[in-house]
Design a protein around this nucleic acid. Structure first.
Lengths: 148, 148
DNA sequence: GTTAGATTATTCGTACACAAACAAGTTTTT
DNA sequence: AAAAACTTGTTTGTGTACGAATAATCTAAC
């Protein structure tokens, strides 16, 4: 907490965001109910459940993963048999992704755990603070609003 | 944004924290003023400047990095000649870390950029909102307050 | 004072994160 | 239609993240 010129690591947005994200990841891992599933894999399954079918890159945009990251996440989900990949007949560059039966069953069984994880992550705050925090955080998560 | 049962990815704390952290990282990279320096490396240098000398594990605790991560961060900083490592005479397990002259010069020159990066990260919020956000985020970054 | 237990740093293995470069395919321009 | 520009998915390389295992050392208990 020392600082010769007022720059205190513990008060920087980036450091705090990183630590809060660490804490959330730990809560996720303890409570998701599937030891292999990671937050990104869970996000991909949830979005796929909502949309039924999407291309890989499109799913990446919806879940905020770049193409290279998405590739790895999808590969691992497919190797577990949770999702299926087939070529798009209208655009031969594209891979159309969808949930397998096992993937659908798994995500239906685990979504409620996801809600609990968010609740637990926000538990140190009062209900009013939770709402406020999510509102502010939503603004800061917007890709614009930076400074070019 | 669809959802059969109210679980909306875009409103989950973890997803928003991840995206806000992504945005911060992009702002950091554009504004830190040293193309090689990463947020973690910057944090390590800042803490080292504040404390002069610390053991590697201790520095890891102060910057919220586990021992394995810290090891890599320190290795890269040392290979750039920004920090020095010497054994602790009182405890032969320990490595005592300190800034080199170049490391000190670099961090002194870049700390103010760090403040600008936090400001820019929080720029979408009003000053009152910024204070509130940091207060709430600080509570959520505390390692306790989870639910065992 | 030795043994059991804890701590320090390292290594290994898996999973993000993302820039950069690429091949293959699609769209836009001219 | 052919060229230029863009998109999709993959690969490579570097840097977090962190669990688990290990060797060396230190500390606490007995």
């Amino acid at each position: 907490m020392t600082a010769k010129d007022g720059y205190i690591l513990e008060r920087q947005a980036g450091h705090l965001l990183r630590r809060a994200h660490q804490r959330h990841s730990a809560i996720f891992q303890e409570n998701i109910g599937d030891a292999q599933l990671t937050p990104l894999q869970f996000a991909a399954l949830v979005k796929l459940r909502d949309l039924n079918e999407v291309s890989q890159n499109h799913l990446g945009r919806l879940t905020a993963m770049d193409a290279a990251t998405m590739q790895g996440v999808i590969k691992r989900l497919a190797s577990r048999g949770l999702i299926e990949r087939r070529p798009d007949p209208n655009d031969r560059r594209r891979l159309i992704l969808s949930l397998s039966v096992e993937g659908r069953d798994l995500i239906e069984a685990l979504v409620s755990n996801g809600s609990g994880i968010t609740a637990q992550t926000l538990a140190p705050l009062s209900p009013a603070e939770q709402k406020q925090f999510l509102d502010l955080l939503t603004k800061l998560a917007q890709l614009n609003g930076n400074g070019e």
